[in-house]
Design a protein around this nucleic acid. Structure first.
Lengths: 201, 201
DNA sequence: CGCTTGACTACACGGGTGTGTAGTAGTTTG
DNA sequence: CAAACTACTACACACCCGTGTAGTCAAGCG
């Protein structure tokens, strides 16, 4: 997506357009004709290259997943606490993340599998980091969901901040906000203990 | 929704069916005929009572919003730290919350306004609670998004836990997980400061 | 050269969609 | 009693969707 649009093959343009429109409008909200128009080709060509809408979706799932893991690898290479910091996720993952979240919500198995992998990795990470929650699995699942939440509500968060969070500045701002959620304990261990007991009775 | 289905008027049955199906499948994913079938009426009656699909959506927005605020009031009456604890949100808000999140993602102004109100209230709360983030607005927006994240990814989280989080048990479990995210600081103030400086240069 | 192959388009199809219209049964109202 | 109104249904219309088919055009190759 860093090359100019004209340089890409029609197939790649269709793929990029699909990821963009699926991510913005949802799978059902983006028609094959929309995607074809966005890519500057006929709707028949989409079918020629990908066979069906469902097959196109699966291809995009796989592609987005691969790209995300690829980018994730780069980041993990400069790991540590920064690995959890949302601001380390470069804005270039935005369209991919957006697409995967939408695909997940529309029941994609590939995207869901990616979520489960993320939970696994957070679980391992929290263990090696010496964090001891009472229910590590639930803790990891909550963290994984949180990591994606700002993508889902990007429009609403942007409106709340009066600033587009898909821009580098806005993204850094909400990233900092998220970071502070993680750095400021809202509930003291005593309060947490109290609430836990309250729930159990 | 606590009364038996037969006791409700056709209008109320349509409204409940719409909130359920819109919430589960998205606005585009649920057709008027689907909703009519779910409510046990003809599709024409939906139009008779609500005029159009869009008008039905707006009615549901308003209804869900009112009900949520109503329930929120009850909870706030037993306020304190518990007001933030996700487990205090009774499972009966599930269909409403699900619907509102979906409606929000499909660009509903009413639902988006509700989000902004939530950010405002979190902002005020954090102030009165003596929390001092560097960017209170961003902090509040992040917290508001987080509060909704488990609803969005309910299927994925359920799969990760091997337990349906729409059930009281599963809901309590992920609620505890969320609570521990808030009670265990992942990043020390020093690390946070370090990361902040890193971003600024 | 003729032939195949792959990228690509134009167009038609059946089905589902939101919407519009006409009409019926039952109750209310003047 | 008759008129009006309300809840409700059946059905048709136009539109958009994903898909299927037929065909064009250019490149590669024996």
């Amino acid at each position: 997506m860093d090359r100019s649009v004209e340089d890409l093959t029609a197939r790649a343009r269709i793929r990029d357009a699909a990821i963009r429109l699926f991510g913005e409008r949802g799978i059902e909200g983006a028609s094959i004709r929309d995607i074809a128009g966005e890519a500057g080709v006929s709707s028949g060509l989409v079918r020629h290259h990908f066979g069906s809408k469902e097959a196109l979706r699966e291809f995009c799932d796989q592609y987005a997943r691969d790209r995300m893991l690829e980018i994730g690898q780069e980041i993990t290479d400069a790991a540590g606490v920064a690995g959890l910091d949302p601001t380390t996720m470069h804005p270039r993952v935005f369209p991919l993340q957006l697409y995967l979240v939408r695909s997940m919500m529309d029941g994609s198995e590939t995207a869901t599998a990616l979520f489960l992998e993320a939970v696994d990795s957070v679980e391992l990470w929290s263990k090696s980091y010496g964090i001891e929650p009472t229910d590590r699995r639930a803790y990891a699942a909550a963290l994984a969901a949180i990591k994606l939440s700002v993508f889902v509500f990007r429009d609403q968060v942007s409106k709340a901040l009066g600033e587009d969070i898909t821009s580098p500045e806005g993204y850094a701002r909400i990233g900092k906000g998220l970071m502070e959620v993680f750095s400021i304990p809202l509930i003291s261990p005593e309060q947490a203990e109290q609430l836990r007991r309250q729930q159990e009775k």
